[in-house]
Amino acid sequence: MARLFSRSVRNMLVCAAAIGTLLSQAPAHAADPSLWQGVQKAGVLRCGAAVAAPYVMRDARSGQYSGYFVDLCRDFGEKVLKVKVEFVDTNWDNLVAGLQGGKWDLAMALNQTPERAMAVSFSVPATDYQISLLTHKDNPKLATAGNAIADYDKPGVSFAVMSGTAADKAISAVVKHGTVMRLPGMDETRLAVMSRRADVLVDASDTNHLFAVANPDWTKEILPAPALAKQGVAFGLSRDASPSDLQVLNIYLTQRRETGEIAALVDKASVLANADEKTSK
């Protein structure tokens, strides 16, 4: 009888300990801080800004920021969170580290990679990065070409690409019959296609789009299918951001992307970037 009683007491103690553990965890879970509630309490959304046109641009004279990720960050802060928005100047080497250190709440225009995902959380992509092609609209060699690499990968077709870049690596892996013309800089690759020494310009889709917007009369942009080196370009958040925090930002971005508003912001930023480039020359 004493043995049964002691076992019952032990069982009760175990149950009490388990209940106590659950109770002690419940308040901590309920008290998990919300990123956006913290931003609203502070009254300001801090956006880490590393310059890369047309995502993020900064006027050297006024210090004012522009670019379509800047537009999105400002709109999200002012219209969704109802707070002021502050852009914190940084560079690409420190953009993730500053997010981890709490120097800003959002990192703008981060390419989604598995390595970065180990350090930060990502929103859904605002846009996509990939390697694209750009040609003359009236190039007779490519009159029937669609968006498959095989349509361009033919004897006598040359691809101009900046040597040693991600675009060089991507196009070199798939071109088997054409000629890859590796040149030292972006200006050289563009001039090669403009002068028709090369048939196809190979570059990141965002920079090719900038070039196309500046030269609408003769350029044709092609996004290859299947895609080359495609990655989402998103906002980075702290790994501590809750699923509900991510959901707020993701719903905002998804709605703006599906309505075409982000595409319009990209075109606006591209025009501005080209105008700034001409002014600086």
Rank of each mutant, 00 (worst) to 15 (best):
S6H: 14
S6N: 15
V9G: 12
I19Q: 02
G20F: 07
G20T: 07
T21L: 11
L23C: 14
A30E: 15
D32A: 14
P33F: 00
Q37M: 02
R46S: 13
V51A: 12
A53M: 11
R61Q: 14
R61G: 07
F69S: 04
L72M: 12
C73H: 01
F76I: 08
K79I: 04
K79L: 09
V88E: 08
T90G: 13
L99V: 06
L99A: 06
G102V: 12
A107F: 00
Q112V: 11
E115M: 01
A117Y: 00
A117P: 01
A119M: 12
V124G: 11
D138G: 03
L142K: 09
G146W: 03
A148K: 15
A150W: 12
S163C: 08
A166C: 02
G185Y: 09
T189W: 02
V193H: 01
V200K: 04
D206P: 02
T207I: 12
A212T: 07
W218T: 04
W218D: 01
K220P: 03
L223G: 07
P224D: 03
G232Q: 03
S242K: 14
D245H: 00
I251F: 11
L253T: 12
T254V: 14
G260A: 02
E261C: 00
E261I: 15
A263T: 04
A264L: 10
N274V: 04
